[in-house]
Design a binder for these strands. Structure first.
Lengths: 280, 280
DNA sequence: GTTGTTTTGGAATTTTTATTCCATTTTTAA
DNA sequence: TTAAAAATGGAATAAAAATTCCAAAACAAC
């Protein structure tokens, strides 16, 4: 009754995150069938809310009773309790939003409210697709490059310019030396780039020549270049050490910046916190 | 057996869109209880996949048998068949976003990916809350003021500056005369404002004095002022003809711009299309 | 190999959920 | 006002789940 590393747990996970932790923690000490359950469930978390025991069982290729044992080992009283967790967490953050959005969009084609509904939807889709497509390796490596930079040079014009100015603002707030290349006075910005600096270049199709040229120049001077762009095939792709891609869902001819800005601020904050720990 | 506008339908809806259509089509000829069902179900479509008959029934405040009749009137053999439609379309339209997000957030506190997960979530919440809180009247009146402007003056510094530059970019793309007040050279921008122009001022707490001062000045010269700000109590509130408020959900000390930019682009596109119809 | 332990599969049971049916009430039209 | 039709609510039933239990199989230690 007092097994040190027992499978049995007294408390059920209270959130999806806890659920995943429990899954990882127990995975090693589970017998074959239960591990099959764990594997299938872990890879199909979103199904749990709408599946039955036997559907899950046949998905994992085990008998239903194995699924029951699996639920209990995780700390739930049974399948019903486990499913409850997933059903509830589905609605968090989903109050009357979808209804309001429908209302907005329905308020007359071309009306400002209808437009707003569409852009909100596009923004949301962009964020969701970003969540599903981040390249974590690239992101980590981008942080790594920028952490070591003396000064970060930010380049991006036209549609990318708001992202540049936002990054410059955020970096400044966190006391990180940056230089925003804004093209004022058409001065030649190349001489500001010094050994030990890094460049963060931002451009989207149709790619701005100035941005690409500056990135190229930085590269030639031996500065590491991080690219924030829309496709891996972008001209920045060949030039840069690390490429972060982000795809914005457009509405009509217009493309917003929700996902791009989310990625940009994450990058900035990650760099800042990594610097802090570096200096401690 | 040959009723012309009967409630009974032979074929069940094959998709959510068809489902909505059927709902709208039948709504007029339904009796009281069934209409209650229709209303509740229509407003809580996403619940169907994970609800039981009696949960739905108590949500709509009708007995379970009414829900059964409702399903059958829509063309389904029963509740189970109707639920099947929603469970299946659960995965297609809304892939594994929430799971991916959980994955991101779980990837180690402080890691870049985890940060990104948080900012994506914050952005999404901001957009959703914008959908739920737009003041359609104010939005329409803002469009009305800006449509009639000869030149639109855009003012906004620090965190609002990316929004300003974005608006300037979008207006420019649509050939609308704008002047972005960027503070370069600290020139006095007041003399650029001419009768017939309008100002679009953007600021968030802590409110930038320059922005407020410029808006005040525009007002004094008789230009209409549209404010884009975070609270109705903002200093711009007293000065402006129309106030658009947008509340960004923050993560830690950081606030992104998803909702603000969605509102900004909607405003810009609405102004542009209203101008086009004006000139036809 | 034998013995004790853990794991497994599926049949039996219990609980929950969906569905039907019909007596009662409400509405509609004459 | 009354008769016919439609709608309603709830009790009864059927179906489908979840859950338990135990005999058989697999495994481990000796």
């Amino acid at each position: 009754m007092d097994e040190p590393a027992s499978l049995a747990h007294l408390s059920a996970p209270r959130s999806i995150v806890e659920f995943r932790e429990r899954l990882a923690e127990l995975n090693d000490m589970m017998p074959k069938r239960l591990r099959q359950c764990a594997e299938y469930v872990g890879a199909n978390l979103e199904r749990i809310a709408v599946s039955t025991v036997s559907e899950l069982a046949s998905g994992a290729d085990v008998p239903p009773s194995a699924v029951m044992r699996f639920c209990q080992i995780l700390g739930f009283s049974g399948f019903t309790e486990m499913q409850k967790l997933f059903r509830e967490s589905y609605f968090s953050g989903w109050p009357d939003y979808s209804v309001r959005l429908q209302n907005l969009k329905a308020s007359g084609a071309g009306s400002p409210s209808a437009l707003l509904g569409e852009f909100i939807e596009a923004g949301r889709l962009s964020l969701e697709s970003l969540a599903a497509s981040v390249d974590e390796v690239a992101l980590n490596s981008a942080v790594g490059l920028l952490v070591r930079a003396e000064t970060i040079h930010i380049v991006g014009f036209r549609r990318a310019f708001p992202v540049s100015t936002y990054l410059a603002y955020v970096f400044e707030k966190m006391s990180i030396p940056t230089m925003l290349h804004d093209g004022v006075g058409k001065l030649d910005p190349r001489f500001a780039m010094r050994r030990g600096d890094a460049m963060l270049a931002i451009t989207f199709a149709p790619y701005s020549e100035e941005t690409v040229a500056l990135a190229q120049d930085a590269r030639a001077r031996g500065l590491p270049v991080v690219a924030l762009t829309d496709f891996a095939t972008s001209p920045l792709g060949r030039i840069s050490d690390t490429v972060l891609t982000v795809h914005e869902v457009d509405f009509g001819a217009f493309r917003s910046l929700s996902a791009t800005i989310a990625l940009a601020i994450s990058l900035a904050v990650a760099v800042a916190s990594a610097r802090d720990t570096l200096n401690e």
